[in-house]
Design a binder for these strands. Structure first.
Lengths: 115, 115
DNA sequence: CTCAATACCTAATCGAGCTAGGTATAAAGC
DNA sequence: GCTTTATACCTAGCTCGATTAGGTATTGAG
C-alpha cells in the first residue's frame, strides 16, 4: 500500500494501540499488522522514531522492563496523549468524510469529450 | 488540517476533479477547496508540481488555451489516468476501512486489497 | 553452531508539501 | 492614471518523515 496514505495516520494508530494498555514497540507493530490483516506494516525505521517523537511531545511515557530475558521499552499514554488521540480520531473522521465529499458526487472516471 | 493526512490523497483528488471534465490548475484547487467546504486547500507549491508529476506519469495530458484573455493549461485524463484513478479510489477505500478496523473494535479489519 | 525471531536503535537517502518568491493579464476601486 | 485584487502559471529551497540498510543483543529451535 502507498505509505504516503499511512504516514498521516501513523501516530494516531500507535496512540490507539497504546491506549489499550501498556505495550512496546515491537508489539505495536505486530498489533497494527494483525489488526489490519497485514495491510499496514509499520517499518522499524518509522516506528521507533515515531515513538520518540510521541515521547518528546509528552503524549506517551516509557519505562524499561525485563521480561523473559528480553529488555523492552514499554509505553503508555499520558493524559495529554489521551486527549491527543481523541483529537486525532476526530480529525481523521473529518478528513475521511472530506475525502468522501470530494469523491462522493463524482461517479466513476469518465472520458472527457474533445473541446 | 494536518497536511500529512492529505499528502497521500492529493493525486487521487486531483485526478478525480479532472475526471469530471477538462480543467486547469487554478480551478482544480478552487474545486477541491469548495467541495470539501474549505477543509482541504491545495497550495500552489503542491498543486503545480503534482500536476507535472501526473503528466510525467502520463496519467493526464495538457494543452494551453486562451480563454477570456487568460492563458490556461488545461488537463484531461488519459486512459491510464482513468485506470489509475479507479485504483487509487479502491486503495483509498481499503485504507479507510483498514483504519476503521484498527480504531474500531480491535477485531481484525476486513480489507479489500487494491488490485 | 547457525539461523530465525524478538527487541531496540539510527545515519543516509528520498519524496513531496510548504514557504516565499517570481511573471503576467484583467477587472475593479480610488 | 494608478493601485489593488483576482486570476493563472511557475520554481528554488526548506523541512519533515518514511524507507533503506545497516548496527547491537538475547532466546530458542534445528
Amino acid at each position: 500500500m502507498d505509505s504516503r496514505l499511512l504516514s498521516g495516520a501513523v501516530e494516531m494508530l500507535m496512540l490507539e494501540v497504546i491506549s489499550h494498555g501498556r505495550t512496546y514497540g515491537y508489539e505495536i507493530s505486530q498489533t497494527v499488522d494483525s489488526r489490519s490483516n497485514g495491510y499496514f506494516s509499520l517499518k522499524e525505521g518509522s516506528l521507533y522514531p515515531a515513538l520518540h517523537r510521541l515521547e518528546q511531545q509528552k503524549l506517551v511515557k516509557s519505562s524499561w522492563h525485563e521480561v523473559e530475558g528480553r529488555r523492552r521499552k514499554y509505553y503508555e499514554l499520558t493524559s495529554a496523549g489521551i486527549k491527543a488521540l481523541d483529537a486525532k480520531k476526530q480529525e481523521w473522521q473529518a478528513f475521511a468524510s472530506g475525502i468522501q465529499g470530494v469523491l462522493g458526487d463524482g461517479q466513476s472516471a469518465t472520458v472527457v469529450p474533445a473541446v
